[in-house]
């Protein structure tokens, strides 16, 4: 089996002697959007931090594009849950900070122009001069998205990027990210606990059991055709089965499957399911 472009190989995180998660294997191919879904406490954010290089795993490795990930780097951008904007810089300043990190030789004006273009891309051209404190929650996260995209990363990492936003703003930003990621063919990995968000954005959804000793119990392949649209996706054949499958997992199986591995479990060969492709799909009006 060829190694995927991003290959997570048996990573684990222990808290004292108890594993938070262990024996975690999965891959992300170029241009693919993968989401990881699970309850809090299963180490989701830690997994993202390990992918970002901000934390080291207690076991296992991550190989991206043939090279081992050993620390944070500009080829992986993070959209933080708490937006993590620098409050003393304007929206433009925050994005320009990232641009100047990527292109150290660029003169200030060129970096600012580039930052302005990226802000324009997320619809914030008007607010470029404002400080984060003068922006709404949704606008702040737009700046966070712009900052991540500004460095043209090969992998975009998102840690529940919309969970702090109200439902309306969340929907708009999901559309925005969907558009930006599809337009750029961006490879992305996202942590979420929002089923609809995962179905809308991700091509594959990793279902994680509750911690401690959490594992990816199942990989759900999202067979709903791209481009997916928030307005119509819930009427797409298969959507219902897909959504039910994930909700069932989160409500019940994430708990019942937690802890001890079943007989013959192989972390490298997690079962793949395609609930949306099943023939028994009831349509809803």
């Amino acid at each position: 089996m060829p190694r995927p472009w991003l290959s997570v190989e048996g990573i684990a995180r222990r808290y004292g002697a108890r594993p938070v998660f262990r024996d975690l294997w999965f891959g992300v191919e170029r241009g693919e959007f993968v989401a990881l879904i699970g309850h809090s406490g299963c180490g989701k954010t830690t997994i993202l931090n390990i992918l970002a290089g901000l934390e080291a795993p207690d076991a296992g490795t991550i190989v991206m594009d043939g090279r081992e990930v050993s620390g944070p780097a500009l080829d992986r951008a993070v959209i933080f849950q708490s937006h993590a904007l620098l409050p003393w810089l304007s929206a433009l300043g925050n994005v320009a900070f990232a641009v100047r990190s990527r292109h150290r030789a660029w003169p200030r004006a060129k970096a600012q122009d580039h930052a302005r273009r990226v802000l324009d891309l997320v619809g914030l051209a008007e607010a470029a001069g404002r400080k984060p404190a003068e922006l709404s929650g949704g606008m702040k996260q737009r700046v966070g998205i712009a900052r991540a995209l500004a460095i043209e990363p090969s992998l975009l990492l998102m840690d529940e990027p919309f969970s702090a936003l109200d439902a309306l703003t969340r929907g708009t930003l999901q559309d925005e990210v969907l558009r930006l990621v599809s337009d750029a063919g961006q490879t992305a990995f996202m942590i979420t606990h929002d089923v609809d968000e995962a179905i809308l954005l991700a091509d594959r959804i990793l279902l994680m059991t509750n911690g401690p000793d959490a594992r990816v119990a199942e990989v759900v392949v999202n067979t709903l055709p791209r481009p997916r649209d928030r307005q119509t996706i819930h009427r797409t054949p298969g959507h219902h089965a897909l959504r039910n499958h994930i909700v069932d997992f989160l409500v019940a199986r994430s708990r019942t499957l937690a802890g001890a591995r079943p007989e013959g479990w192989d972390g490298r060969r997690v079962p793949e399911v395609r609930p949306a492709a099943s023939p028994i799909e009831e349509t809803i009006s």
Partner: peptide, 27 residues
């Protein structure tokens, strides 16, 4: 200084000097 701001600097590969001047000092 907020851990998340330092993480931003780290993911942007800002060196120790740039992190000190552009992130820690203003913070």
């Amino acid at each position: 200084v907020r851990r998340e701001w330092l993480n931003v600097a780290r993911t942007l590969e800002a060196g120790p000097w740039r992190t000190a001047v552009a992130v820690i000092l203003p913070a």
